[in-house]
Design a protein around this nucleic acid. Structure first.
Lengths: 241, 241
DNA sequence: CTAGCTTCTTGTCAATCTGACAGAAATAGC
DNA sequence: GCTATTTCTGTCAGATTGACAAGAAGCTAG
């Protein structure tokens, strides 16, 4: 921003991907085992550097997703989560990483890609509790991603993105319960999502479970923003962070 | 992310600041007139490159704020808004910019700083309508910042950040009306903010206006998150009852 | 085939919240 | 005093929420 002989410093730009899904009623995040230093052997988010100086950042995120996790890119909508660029977060130098968030329905185990020794789903609560040891500042990035998902569930139709193309209302309730970490009354939840116009639309058929009355099937509706929003019950007492 | 002889490309990292305030019941954004190319003479957000390779990004944002706008940094809380790094957004090369958002009470006219030929507040609607010609992709950044402020007003106590240390409920209502671009019923607004625990606390005294009954003064309360949230009336025809 | 179990779906009811509006309270100016 | 103006306190119907009862539709065991 000046025409002095001073030249601005340069940084390495990376992308990191927080891919969340639901497995056995628990929220999971896609992690790889790093095959190279630094943090070789540690778990980390899929991601990597820009391939060339003109690559679009979002395009790089999609590319890394397919390279490192071999997931179908088409169905996932990536949303920018934030920038993580503290000096010293990467021993290789000044690396600034753009984190992206995506929500996926239940998917098969991904296969390891080029730079990843292994790839797989890990429960987010094991990550957030510090039970798993993550590379870089990826634990914090995941924490931010989970929190983002929690709030997006309130105001957007994101919940349907966790489900398969057709799903039951109980399926959708399971999404809310897993992400929010609480239990909800099935009858009130049923009433609420039915009344929220454009959230879900009937898919005609029914699905018979192993036991119990068959449930009607629905599809994601046209709305992306929910009005009125789903209300998440207050948790702690008065003043919270 | 590989140990091939390939080296990752580097980018120039910049910060941009979206500082919003209220002046004469209209939302304004702080803009500078660029004193150097590119876009010399155009209006732009305050901002600039990292000073050195180890500078913290948030620290750089605070530094640019004081350098270019000469505003009191202490009282402003900067919040990361997003990353803007499309190839070609800056003719000087691959520049990736981290945008920050801050909300300020009514402040005096800032003085021009080093790189800025002039600095001043501009109404956001003139920016968003395309009436003013902004440098780079700064119009879009401002649009995102305004939208962020709108939604934050719903769920956080951000509204008080637009006000001076003590304010009346009518002052606070003016904030909501200006940012949301609608009018609200004073009686229902009064009831709502009073009932939302921790939002505002009485400041004891009253302020007498030029005319009319004196209004009680309040301060910002301890809560940052509002529960229940302020509800913004639905606007679009899309999916409404 | 019937009883029992499970799960989905439809209601009911009181408490609360919202939106619209009436009107009293407090000050300045005449 | 009287009026204009703004702040504050109520009222009231309709909508929403949270808690819970009970019917509906399947499966399985006997």
């Amino acid at each position: 921003m000046t025409d002095d002989p001073w030249v601005p410093p340069v940084v390495l730009l990376a992308v990191d991907l927080v891919i969340l899904t639901l497995r056995e009623s628990r929220l999971h995040v896609l992690l790889i085992e790093r095959g190279i230093d630094p943090y070789k052997g540690n778990l980390a988010l899929p991601g990597g550097f820009l391939r060339h100086a003109e690559e679009d950042i979002t395009a790089a995120a999609h590319r890394e997703l397919s390279e490192e996790a071999d997931l179908d890119v088409e169905t996932l909508r990536l949303e920018q989560l934030g920038v993580y660029g503290d000096p010293g977060r990467d021993p290789r130098g000044r690396v600034v990483s753009v984190a992206y968030l995506a929500i996926a329905p239940r998917l098969p185990e991904p296969t390891a890609g080029t730079d990843a020794a292994d790839a797989g789903w890990q429960p987010t609560d094991r990550v957030l509790s510090g039970d798993l040891d993550l590379a870089f500042d990826h634990q914090r990035i995941i924490a931010d991603g989970v929190e983002r998902a929690r709030t997006k569930l309130e105001h957007s139709a994101l919940g349907t993105a966790f489900c398969r193309p057709t799903f039951t209302i109980t399926d959708l309730q399971g999404v809310y319960e897993a992400v929010w970490g609480i239990t909800l009354d099935p009858r009130n939840f049923y009433r609420k999502v039915q009344k929220t116009e454009g959230f879900i639309v009937p898919a005609g058929t029914s699905r018979k479970a192993a036991t119990g009355r068959p449930a009607r099937l629905f599809r994601a509706g046209p709305c992306t923003a929910l009005y009125p929003p789903m209300v998440r019950p207050a948790e702690g007492p008065s003043a919270k962070e």
